[in-house]
Design a protein around this nucleic acid. Structure first.
Lengths: 201, 201
DNA sequence: AGCTCATGTCAACGAACATTGACATGGCGA
DNA sequence: TCGCCATGTCAATGTTCGTTGACATGAGCT
């Protein structure tokens, strides 16, 4: 995004003619840009410039914008991040991450921002149904386990996305007691969903 | 959206020269289109066609696309819908609405879809901070009441948006036991947030 | 009726975009 | 060293968009 440093870097380190490296660079830039701006607001030219390549190469290596988007989306969900969470501390840690600034867990945030952007763009939303099932809802369901894992995973995923949007909208950081209450409440939601025993009302 | 019926209707009921009516028609069409497609994917020409007006009138009456969007956004949140909910049945009714097809509560869904689209578009997101505070978070906070209403309203609003996104992504309807569990879990979340006494973990 | 100004229509502009095919060029095998 | 093909570059095309100013027209007033 008008990053002069990137241009300098590109000119300083001209890639040797290497199709694979170029393809990878384009894909990496695509992941970033699509996650940041969404499908509609991302220009192939920007991706190409960020990757230090030409727009025409995008067409050559990926076929077109939509194909590039799909590949970037799939690549972003290659390794899911749930397996390595400690179940005991998960709810509280996740809630803390959601309460504080977006820079705490950049990589994870990035991936799910990508998902969110993809889900809320009318152009790409129809493409997501299957992918969501396989790479998002599925892993969550398996990780949750227990009875009615499917439905709980739905609520889990929905809440998660909602908190991401909230953090996206909210500019300033939460502080003091408001932050504590926010974390406690969010943690309670996740904790409840991790159990297959419905809490008493 | 290529709706021949709209064209026919327009030609059949040509508005008499009435600036106010034309302005209102454009604004109504804008509310629909912006909510449906988001800021970036909505073309002024489509809005004008839907309203049976000319593109130039958009400029004359509103000044430009961004101004029209802001006015449409504010107009969509003129009357908030929380006051008239029955508090006793709120959580379950809201959860049911979120579980079932988008057509159950068209108007309310519509308004919040507008908000969601506005929040997730990089073009319009920066404009939202104040509006969100005043017309969305504020009413929820007041409606919730009790201790730490601010923080609870944040979690409430975030969850709500998340469930809207989930419904947007999910194509098919929820059925049978999955639907029941979904509703119960979502209702539990809302119910917990309506109380200022944190549930025991 | 005639004038007039609010209201509506139209065509065009310039920018941004994805896509495409023609062209240049560097690296590698013969 | 020479030639070829993968790789990279460039310019052009067609489309869509927001915006703009010039022009037409109808309703209401004198």
């Amino acid at each position: 995004m008008n990053d002069p440093a990137a241009l300098v870097r590109v000119r300083a380190n001209p890639r040797k003619r290497d199709a694979e490296a170029t393809r990878a660079a384009i894909l990496a830039a695509a992941k970033t840009q699509f996650a940041l701006l969404g499908y509609d607001c991302t220009a192939l030219r920007d991706i190409a410039r960020e990757a230090g390549a030409d727009v025409a190469l995008v067409k050559r290596y990926f076929g077109g914008k939509e194909a590039l988007f799909l590949e970037a989306l799939k690549a972003s969900f290659g390794s899911d991040g749930l397996h390595d969470w400690d179940r005991a501390s998960f709810a509280h840690e996740m809630a803390t991450m959601l309460a504080d600034s977006p820079h705490v867990d950049e990589a994870r945030t990035h991936r799910f921002q990508f998902l969110l952007r993809a889900a809320t763009s009318p152009t790409t939303a129809p493409l997501l149904n299957l992918l969501i099932q396989d790479r998002f809802l599925g892993p969550i369901r398996d990780w949750l386990g227990g009875a009615d894992a499917e439905a709980r995973a739905r609520v889990f995923a929905a809440s998660y996305i909602g908190f991401l949007v909230e953090r996206l909208i909210r500019g300033e950081a939460l502080l003091g007691r408001e932050r504590d209450v926010f974390i406690d409440r969010v943690a309670a939601i996740f904790a409840a969903l991790m159990s297959d025993r419905e809490a008493a009302t």
